[in-house]
Amino acid sequence: MTVNLTDRMKAWIEAMGCHLCVATQEGVPFVVLGRYAQARAGDEVVFALAEDEANVLAPVLSKNARVAFGVSRQGGIRAAYQFKGTGELLRSGEVFDAVAARAKEEKAIDAGAILLVRLTELYCTKPGYEAGLRLDGMTPEEIDAWERQRWKDVPRKKE
């Protein structure tokens, strides 16, 4: 389905970073932090990963590209969403160069790889009757209106 990230979702993702979860084909999960995140489109997010972070994900992603992530820190409660899609590790090229440069400048991360996640699913994770509600497939206007009825707070970017 089509995912349309709202400006608020993008702000939380970029301000707090994300916890990135992958799993082997046999179902063993692994997690690392995506400390520098950039929403490049309504349905694409990139994360700058240090070499050791990339090394945890690479062997898993090479056989199973599925990625799930949630927003880190206060975003775990304030940005109550789960984002799912397919991930690709980039180690060179235009996107790698641009994102790695920004990650170095903003967070002093020496990126060994960029994880590009193409989103295909979006879920509400707010505890209660809306937990698990699927939000992909909504138009940008619909998802924006849905979110504005619930939350409007946007975080400041962490240094």
Binding site: V22, V31, R66, A68, G70, T125
Partner: peptide, 13 residues
Amino acid sequence: CTSSRDGNPNIAA
């Protein structure tokens, strides 16, 4: 963080 048997990851706070 959990996963289906065939490797579909899930993360929930």
